[in-house]
Design a protein around this nucleic acid. Structure first.
Lengths: 193, 193
DNA sequence: ACAAAATTAGAACAATTGTTCTAATTTTGT
DNA sequence: ACAAAATTAGAACAATTGTTCTAATTTTGT
C-alpha cells in the first residue's frame, strides 16, 4: 500500500470515527505518522480525498451487484445477499451516508455520480422484480407506480438506515446487522408471495 | 420579536440554506445586521443556538400531535394530516434532519431528547394502529414484530426523506411535498384495508 | 429623573485551518 | 554510479474561527 492509498484508508477510518465536521487534514496526517505537508503533496485539496473515497464506494457497489448476477439466486437468497452486501458497504463508508447532503453540496461531482447510480439501480430493481414475479416469488398485482415507490423506499432505508441507527444510540456491531436485516425484511414482507 | 428570537430565526434560515458545515456565528450576525459580539452576548456558545432550535422543533411536533388527537379522524384523513404536518416540520427544520448524526454527536442532549421522543411516538403509533384495526381500517393480521418494523420504517422515511430528496437533486417546493406524500403513502399501502 | 441593569458594537485574542514553500532525502531509470 | 524525479518533514502564511473584553449606549424600574 503506497502513501496515497494509506491516506485514503486513514481518512476513511478517521471520518467514520469522528465525522467530517471536526476532522482536519492535520489530524489524518498525525494519525498515520506523516506530515501535513506530505499529505497535501498527494492530495492538494481535502475534497480530493473524499472524492477518491466515494469512487471506491461506487466500485465496491458495482462489484457487489456483479457478484449477485453471477449466482442466479432464488429471491429470498438474493434478498439475504443484498442485505449482507449492502450492510457491509454502508458500514464501511458510513461517514458518507451520515453526511450525504453536505458532501453532495460540497463536492457536486459526488451528487451527480450518485444520481447516475440511483437511476441505474432503479432499472435493475424493476427488471429484477419482474423476473421474480414471473417465477411466482414476487407479487404480480403491484401497479408500476407503487413498485417505483417501493424501490424509492428501499433506497431511503438502505442509504439512511445507518443514520437512524446511529441517532437512536446503536453501538454494538452485531445488533447493527440484525437491525438492518429486520428493517429491510419488513419492507419486503408485503411484496413477497 | 426580541434579539434572541431574531438570532434563532436567522440561524435557522442560514443553516437551512447553507448547512452547518460552513456557516459561522459571524455570518449569522452579519445576515441580521448585528455584531458578532452581540450574538454571543445572547448565546454564549453556538451549540446553545442549535439546542434552542431543536427545542422549538420538539414543541412544534408535540403541538401537531395534540391537534390530531382533538380531531377524531378516519385513518385516511389522519394519514393526510400526518403527511402535511410532518412535511411542514421536516421542511422548516431541514438542516437538523440533514445533519442529524453530527448534531447528536456534537450536542448529546439533543440525541437523548430525540430518543425520548421516538419512544413516545412508537407507543402512540402502536395504539393508534390497534384502534384503527378495530374499526376495520387497518389490517388486523399483522404480527407485532412486523408492526414495530413498519413503524421503524415510517420513522426512517420521515426523518430522512428530505436528505434523500436533497441528494437526488430535488429543488422545487411543490414537487417536494408530492414526493414526500407519495413515499409515505406507498409505505402505508400494504397495511390499509 | 436617575441609578442600575441590559444591550450593543467593535476591537482584540488565541487557536486552528487548509495549503504552500523550501530544503533535504529517497527512489528511479539508465 | 549518478542525474532527474518523486517523496518527505517542517516551517511559514494568510485567513478564519468562536469567544471575550471594553467602553458606550439604551432600557428599565422606581
Amino acid at each position: 500500500m503506497n502513501t496515497k492509498e494509506k491516506i485514503v484508508a486513514a481518512a476513511l477510518d478517521v471520518y467514520n470515527r469522528e465525522g467530517i465536521r471536526t476532522v482536519t487534514t492535520r489530524q489524518i496526517a498525525r494519525e498515520m505518522g506523516i506530515s501535513a505537508g506530505n499529505l497535501h503533496y498527494h492530495f492538494k485539496h481535502t475534497e480530493d480525498i473524499i472524492f477518491t473515497i466515494f469512487g471506491q464506494l461506487q466500485r465496491d457497489y458495482d462489484e457487489m451487484v456483479a457478484l449477485f448476477d453471477k449466482k442466479d439466486l432464488v429471491l429470498r437468497e438474493l434478498l439475504q445477499e443484498f442485505i449482507n452486501g449492502s450492510y457491509r458497504l454502508i458500514n464501511k463508508y458510513r461517514f458518507i451516508f451520515v453526511n450525504f447532503v453536505e458532501v453532495c453540496a460540497w463536492i457536486p461531482a459526488i451528487g451527480e455520480s450518485y444520481r447516475d447510480l440511483v437511476m441505474r439501480r432503479e432499472e435493475q430493481f424493476v427488471s429484477l422484480f419482474r423476473y421474480y414475479a414471473e417465477l411466482g416469488m414476487f407479487r404480480q398485482d403491484i401497479p408500476i407506480a407503487i413498485l417505483k415507490g417501493f424501490i424509492r423506499q428501499i433506497f431511503i432505508i438502505s442509504d439512511f438506515w445507518y443514520s437512524s441507527f446511529a441517532v437512536l444510540g446503536g453501538r454494538c456491531q452485531s445488533d447493527a446487522l440484525e437491525d438492518y436485516r429486520q428493517t429491510i425484511e419488513v419492507a419486503f414482507y408485503p411484496y413477497l408471495t
